[in-house]
């Protein structure tokens, strides 16, 4: 990797991947990727379908563990701890590393229950604490105004955009430090997309956000750094503006100029 993000400060990267290879059976999905992601930044992964960007994102909270035939080499460190060490408890990791999925996937429960879910599975039973955290999370996710009078209504009654903000609130409620987003707006209309993009921008001050997107304009609008993936390789990774205005690699250039994808 040549064009590494320049980070003059001495602080450690929030997430750091070292020589990562991923296999599904005989198929190699990720080819020798190393990358650092810093705290309180938004990092976008772009690339054509099947390039490995989602697979790579899902390494950070070990969501690939359940995929049949999954095998990984290399290290992924979060706050300097290798999360693929034997002793790591996946459940604990995921409380630190939240995830928002492509399609809004609220549980078929009430709005309140959705946001409270993560707290309850951690064994928090104090109603006052839960109430407070639910309110804070909904406020952070910009859903409080719309939802505060309907907390007991089914989450499935919300619109697609509201559902996705609910899923973000659900993630925020457990107070993670990293949020992974896997094409969070691809199923939403333009207005809902804008609201979520604004939200991502606001959340940056408190969280480290990694977002996979199909939409290059979106990457340009919201991210600080962008990585371009192609056929399981990380082709180019640097400051977003730099990548879009001055791509070094011809594959990157072809992709962002819309010649394939």
């Amino acid at each position: 990797m040549t064009d590494h993000v320049k980070d003059k400060e001495l602080k450690l990267p929030k997430i750091s991947a070292e020589d990562v290879n991923v296999f599904y059976g005989d198929f190699q999905a990720i080819k020798n990727i190393s990358m650092d992601i810093n705290s309180n930044t938004v990092t976008a992964f772009i690339g054509p379908s099947g390039c490995g960007k989602s697979t790579f994102l899902r390494l950070f909270n070990r969501m690939n563990d359940y995929v049949e035939g999954f095998r990984m080499e290399g290290k992924i460190k979060i706050d300097d701890n290798n999360i693929y060490k034997k002793k790591v408890h996946v459940e604990e990791l995921r409380k630190k590393v939240g995830m928002v999925f492509q399609k809004p996937n609220p549980f078929p429960k009430s709005i309140y229950e959705n946001v409270a879910y993560g707290l309850k599975i951690q064994g928090i039973s104090n109603k006052k604490i839960i109430d407070e955290r639910v309110e804070t999370a909904l406020k952070q996710a910009d859903l409080w105004k719309e939802a505060k009078d309907n907390l007991n209504k089914s989450a499935l009654a919300l619109s697609g955009g509201q559902q996705q903000r609910l899923c973000i609130a659900r993630t925020l409620a457990v107070e993670p430090s990293i949020i992974l987003m896997d094409e969070p707006t691809s199923a939403l209309d333009p207005i809902s997309t804008t609201r979520i993009e604004e939200l991502i921008f606001e959340l940056k001050s408190n969280y480290t956000i990694v977002i996979v997107t199909h939409n290059m304009q979106q990457a340009g609008r919201i991210s600080d750094n962008t990585g371009f993936f192609y056929l399981g390789e990380l082709i180019e990774y640097k400051n977003t503006k730099d990548l879009f205005t001055n791509p070094k690699n011809t594959k990157t250039e072809n992709y962002i100029s819309g010649r394939f994808g």
Binding site: H89, E91, E92, I121, Q122, G123
Partner: peptide, 8 residues
């Protein structure tokens, strides 16, 4: 702790 309990 609660986490260990869940694992068990």
């Amino acid at each position: 702790n609660n986490h260990q309990k869940n694992r068990i």
